[in-house]
Computed example of a mutant assay.
Amino acid sequence: MAKKDKDIFDRIMSAKIWGPLGPFYFKNKEVLLYLLFGGLTTVVSIASYYVAYKICGINVLIANIISWVFAVTFAYITNKIWVFDSETNNFKEVLGEIFKFYTGRLATLVVEEVIILVFDTLLHFNSMLVKLVAQIIVIVLNYIVSKLFVFKKKEA
C-alpha cells in the first residue's frame, strides 16, 4: 500500500520554523494529536454541558448525556481522520468502527456518570469542577479503549 500524503499537521510541523519540535512531533504524533483533540473534545463536552445544564436548566445527569453525544461525535470524526489515521474499505467496516467507538465511549460515560452522581448529586461538590475532573479521567480511559479496541492497525 502506498504511503498516504502528509496531513495538515504533518505539513505544519515539517516547516523549518519548528526546529527541534518537528522530530518530537513526528515521534509522538498519535499521543500529541490525541491530547489536542481530547482537549477540544473536552471543550465541546463542557460547553454543551454548560448550555444544557446552566442555560436550559436540564437535570445534571441528562445534561451530561447530551454533552456526551456532542463530544463523542466530534471525537469519532477527529480520532478516525487525524489521531489514529483509520482506514476503512467499505460501509460495513465504518459501521463496525462506529459501533465499537460508541460502545467504548458508552462504557466511559458510565464511569463519568458515576463520578458526577457521587461528587455532584450526593456530595454537592462544584458541578463544573466535578465535570472537569471527570473529563480528565475519561480522556485517559478513552485513549486506551480507542488504541486497543477501536482503531487497531490491521495486520498486513
Score class of each variant (00 low, 15 high):
140 V>F: 15
142 N>G: 07
81 I>T: 14
57 G>H: 09
86 S>T: 08
155 E>G: 08
120 D>P: 03
105 R>H: 13
28 N>A: 09
53 Y>N: 09
47 A>R: 00
66 I>R: 03
11 R>Q: 14
52 A>G: 07
33 L>F: 04
80 K>E: 08
98 I>E: 05
120 D>T: 11
132 L>H: 06
10 D>P: 00
92 K>Q: 11
64 N>Y: 05
83 V>H: 01
116 I>F: 05
75 A>R: 02
86 S>E: 08
85 D>F: 01
19 G>V: 06
22 G>V: 05
63 A>R: 01
84 F>T: 06
60 V>A: 10
112 E>N: 15
87 E>A: 13
55 I>Q: 12
30 E>L: 09
135 Q>L: 00
144 I>A: 11
38 G>A: 07
76 Y>E: 08
94 V>N: 15
138 V>G: 01
20 P>A: 11
140 V>N: 08
115 I>W: 05
5 D>Q: 13
121 T>S: 14
94 V>R: 13
59 N>A: 12
130 V>M: 03
11 R>Y: 08
108 T>A: 09
44 V>P: 00
11 R>M: 13
50 Y>H: 10
140 V>P: 02
151 F>K: 01
27 K>C: 09
52 A>N: 04
121 T>F: 11
48 S>I: 01
54 K>N: 14
2 A>Q: 13
109 L>D: 01
16 K>R: 14
60 V>P: 06
135 Q>H: 05
53 Y>G: 02
119 F>E: 06
142 N>K: 02
79 N>S: 14
155 E>Y: 08
50 Y>W: 14
62 I>V: 15
82 W>A: 06
81 I>E: 12
112 E>H: 10
125 F>T: 02
125 F>E: 08
106 L>F: 15
113 E>T: 13
69 V>Y: 03
144 I>Y: 12
156 A>G: 13
96 G>E: 11
103 T>A: 15
142 N>L: 06
33 L>E: 00
102 Y>S: 03
